[in-house]
Computed example of a mutant assay.
Amino acid sequence: MIKYHPSEQILQSYVQGELCASLSVAVSMHVAMCPQCQQLTSQFEASCAHSFAGEDMELQGDENWDDLIAQITENTMFAEDPAPAPLEIEVKGEQFVLPSSLQNVGLSGWLKLGKLSRSRLNLGDGKLHASLLHIEKGGSVPQHTHKGFELTLLLSGTFKDEMDSYVPGDFIMLDGEHEHSPVATESCLCFTLADDALHFSQGLSQLFNPIGKLIY
C-alpha cells in the first residue's frame, strides 16, 4: 500500500497548473498510481471549476453541474487521438514500461556506477535535475543527506532505508534534515528530482562528494 503522498498544497497547485514541469510530471505519475490522490485531485478540480465559473452563475431550469459536465464530455465532435504505445526501456537486461507522463520526454544515455544507473530527463527546469534511477537488487546509495531537496517517486520494485520500506507509487520528499542510505530489496526504478547534489556523510563515500551530482 502506498504510504507517502504529495501534500494537499502540492496537489492543489498541480490542479491549478502552478507547478514546474518536473514536479508536475512527478505528481501526475503518482496520481495515476494512487486511488487516494485521484479522489483528492478530482475534488480539487471540481472546486476549481466552481470557482472559475463563479458562485453567482445561474443554471437554467433543472440543470446542474453534473448535467453540464456530462454534456461536455459526451460531445463527439472531436475525435480522440489514439493512446500512444507504451514506451519500454531496458536497463541492465531488465525491461520497464514508463508511465504515460514520460512518453514524450527525452532520455539521456545511462551513466552506470556499480549497481546504480542514471538517465537524465530533459524537462527544461534549469537547476532542477530530473532523472530515472535504477538500482539493482542489493544495490545501495551510500549514507547521505541533501544540500537542497530530493524527491523520489518509486515506479517499480522496492527499497528501504533507515526510515521505512517503500513500494511503487510512494512519493518521498526529503531535505537537509534527513540522512539515509537507500537499499534496493528488489531491483527498482525511481523517478528522482533534486535541486542540488547529494552530500555523502560517512566513511570513504565522502570522497565522492565532488561527483554527488552525477547520481541525482
Rank of each mutant, 00 (worst) to 15 (best):
2 I>C: 09
4 Y>P: 01
5 H>V: 03
5 H>Q: 10
7 S>R: 02
9 Q>E: 15
15 V>K: 06
20 C>G: 15
23 L>Y: 10
24 S>R: 12
27 V>T: 08
28 S>I: 00
32 A>Y: 05
32 A>H: 07
36 Q>V: 13
39 Q>D: 13
39 Q>S: 11
45 E>V: 01
47 S>A: 15
47 S>K: 12
50 H>V: 03
54 G>Y: 06
55 E>H: 15
56 D>P: 08
58 E>S: 15
60 Q>S: 02
60 Q>R: 04
64 N>S: 07
66 D>Y: 00
74 E>N: 11
78 F>Y: 11
84 P>H: 10
88 E>D: 11
92 K>P: 00
93 G>I: 09
95 Q>A: 09
96 F>E: 02
98 L>M: 01
110 W>L: 13
112 K>G: 05
114 G>M: 01
115 K>T: 11
117 S>E: 06
119 S>G: 05
122 N>K: 14
122 N>E: 15
128 L>S: 03
129 H>D: 01
137 K>E: 15
138 G>V: 07
138 G>C: 10
142 P>T: 03
142 P>H: 06
147 K>I: 13
154 L>S: 10
154 L>R: 02
156 S>D: 14
158 T>A: 07
162 E>F: 07
163 M>W: 08
164 D>H: 12
168 P>C: 10
168 P>R: 08
169 G>A: 05
173 M>A: 09
176 G>D: 03
176 G>P: 01
180 H>E: 06
181 S>K: 14
182 P>V: 10
194 A>C: 15
204 L>A: 15
207 L>E: 08
210 P>M: 05
214 L>K: 13
